[in-house]
């Protein structure tokens, strides 16, 4: 994907401005801040570290920390359906991301460029959808999907996820499209491009960070949902990872090693995705596009 507009848009609408990059003037305050933040990070991330630590520790909580083992992982991968759940989660999440991007990109364009009462109404609709308590839709959707044979089905789940990401994804897209000058599309229209072609060829092509932001958001939401998955999915071959993880608690004594090993499996994909793409991720701009224009 070649990018005809260089650097100017690379950072996204709200990339934090790195503090003045002057030469080092006495390292002490700089190191002090670094140390402060380091300590804060270490304290705040204790729950994450704990998960990883326990996953690599042998069973029996009391044993010393020096033992390192992969036994928990080999157990959960060979004796439980973690691989199936991982596959299910990946399938649902990727489908959600793909559809959510395809649906919210054009919608975001309308929100960004549209200037009518109808667009305002659409903005309000999105806002209401976002504030809609999902718990209300769970029961009626369960009944509906049961009739359509979409309950206990990953497709049904993906449909629900797409619609629960739509509002934020659309705002993110719109926020990014806002940073792209209308003049560019106007030039394309003069050259005979239709409105839609102008959107795809000019706006969308230059909006990789906006698209990725929405995609990351959809990924995180779909990957970690518990509510809908817990209501819709019944057969354990259809479980997604969050539901699968919960099954480890149903036994009388929880085997924390296994639980944490599965937890690591659950948290690695979003961390990888976010780790690689976070420089594109920006949510700060959505305020500007919330209510339309």
């Amino acid at each position: 994907m070649s990018n005809p507009i260089p650097v100017a848009f690379e950072e996204g609408p709200a990339a934090p401005r790195g503090g003045a990059r002057t030469k080092k003037t006495g390292t002490s305050p700089q190191w002090r801040y670094t140390l402060t933040v380091l300590i804060i990070v270490l304290v705040l991330l204790i729950p994450v570290f704990v998960t990883v630590m326990l996953a690599f520790q042998p069973q029996l909580q009391s044993t010393s920390h020096s033992h390192f083992t992969l036994q928990n992982f080999s157990y959960v991968f060979s004796q439980t359906q973690v691989l199936t759940w991982l596959r299910n989660s990946l399938a649902v999440t990727l489908a959600t991301v793909l559809v959510a991007v395809c649906v919210s990109a054009p919608a975001g364009y309308v929100l960004s460029r549209g200037r009518s009462r109808a667009v305002s109404g659409y903005a309000l609709l999105l806002f209401i959808a976002q504030s809609f308590p999902q718990i209300v839709s769970v029961v009626p959707l369960f009944v509906l999907f049961a009739k359509l044979n979409l309950d206990d089905n990953l497709l049904g789940l993906a449909i629900v996820y797409v619609s629960s990401t739509i509002a934020v994804a659309t705002w993110m897209m719109a926020a990014y499209f806002d940073t792209i000058p209308v003049a560019l599309e106007e030039a394309a229209w003069i050259d005979g491009c239709s409105l839609f072609k102008g959107f795809v060829r000019i706006v969308l092509r230059n909006s990789l960070p906006g698209v990725l932001s929405a995609a990351i958001f959809a990924f995180l939401l779909a990957w970690s949902d518990y509510l809908f998955a817990s209501v819709f999915l019944r057969s354990d071959s259809n479980f997604t990872l969050p539901i699968g993880l919960q099954t480890f608690f149903s036994t009388n004594s929880t085997e924390w090693g296994y639980v944490m090993a599965v937890s690591v499996v659950v948290m690695v994909p979003p961390i990888i995705v976010f780790g690689f793409l976070n420089r594109y991720f920006s949510i700060g701009g959505i305020g500007g596009s919330l209510a339309g224009h």
Binding site: G19, L38, P47, T51, L241, V266, F274
Partner: peptide
């Protein structure tokens, strides 16, 4: 916003509670 080393790394790390699924962090 202060000048410090490895700012972007820290920033990413600080976002982890939001990135790691709730099922995992609730467990820990």
């Amino acid at each position: 916003r202060r000048r410090m080393h490895a700012r972007n790394f820290f920033k990413t790390m600080l976002l982890l509670p939001w990135v790691v699924p709730v099922v995992v962090t609730a467990t820990s």
